[in-house]
């Protein structure tokens, strides 16, 4: 069938790239926002959270893709959640063992990866319908896009809120930090500004395309 042929087409560069830019989970699809804002007050925390989510995403979508013919349709969501929860528990215990400092900084938000709608969304919309290899590539792209988005938000908040970048002071001793950017309102405002920027870029691109079309 042609529909199957399309779904089983070999993975391309686009499979990897669409998660980073065109379908970026945070900036375009607005998924997984809670961790994107909650732990992104420094670049390091944001990066750690992004990587942890990527590991969970990759592990669970791979397993779901392998098992996609075995999971009955009626209980698929419950099965996906159980699989995701398993990987989250693994990541949670791993971070606890590796770095207690990071574990305390991220707090309950590692365990809350389980309800990150990005992961369940990928499982339902992609992993349950595609081959293992395409799923792996797509998940790496999505994870990279998610990590990038978190990093962008976290970096801005750290630079303005602490005056540092990965803990390195940037502005010298006279800098007066904008405390509001480390606090919750800063998360909303920085994310909102990134959304405006990306929307503006996309609009300009579309307008250019229209102009080219008319000409």
């Amino acid at each position: 069938m042609p529909r199957d042929a399309k779904q089983l087409s070999p993975p391309t560069m686009d499979t990897l790239k669409e998660g980073v830019w065109k379908e970026n989970p945070v900036f375009i699809a607005l998924l997984g926002l809670c961790p994107a804002l909650a732990v992104s007050n420094t670049a390091l925390n944001a990066l750690a959270m992004g990587l942890a989510s990527t590991v969970v995403l990759l592990g669970s979508t791979t397993l779901i893709s392998v098992l996609r013919h075995l999971i009955p349709k009626q209980v698929r969501i419950a099965s996906y959640i159980i699989i995701i929860a398993t990987f989250v528990t693994i990541v949670d215990y791993t971070i606890h063992a590796l770095s207690l400092e990071l574990y305390n900084a991220l707090g309950a938000f590692i365990q809350l990866i389980v309800v990150n709608c990005m992961i369940l969304g990928r499982a339902e919309a992609y992993a349950s319908k595609n081959r293992v290899i395409t799923t792996i590539i797509n998940s790496i792209g999505m994870g990279a896009g998610f990590t990038l988005a978190l990093f962008l938000v976290g970096a801005i908040r750290e630079i303005l809120g602490f005056g540092t970048f990965f803990g390195i002071p940037l502005f010298g001793p006279d800098f007066q930090p904008w405390a509001v950017f480390i606090l919750p309102p800063g998360g909303f405002i920085v994310l909102s500004l990134w959304l405006v920027l990306f929307a503006a870029i996309r609009r300009r691109k579309e307008q250019r395309k229209e102009v080219a079309h008319v000409a």
Binding site: P184, P185, F188, I189, S192, L193, L195, A199, R203
Partner: peptide, 22 residues
């Protein structure tokens, strides 16, 4: 403004609400 899609402006509002709740 056109570039402020509904999500962006909603987040800005949420930021101000959050500021008020502080």
């Amino acid at each position: 403004p056109d570039a402020c899609t509904s999500a962006a402006i909603s987040f800005m509002l949420a930021g101000l609400l959050s500021l008020a709740f502080m």
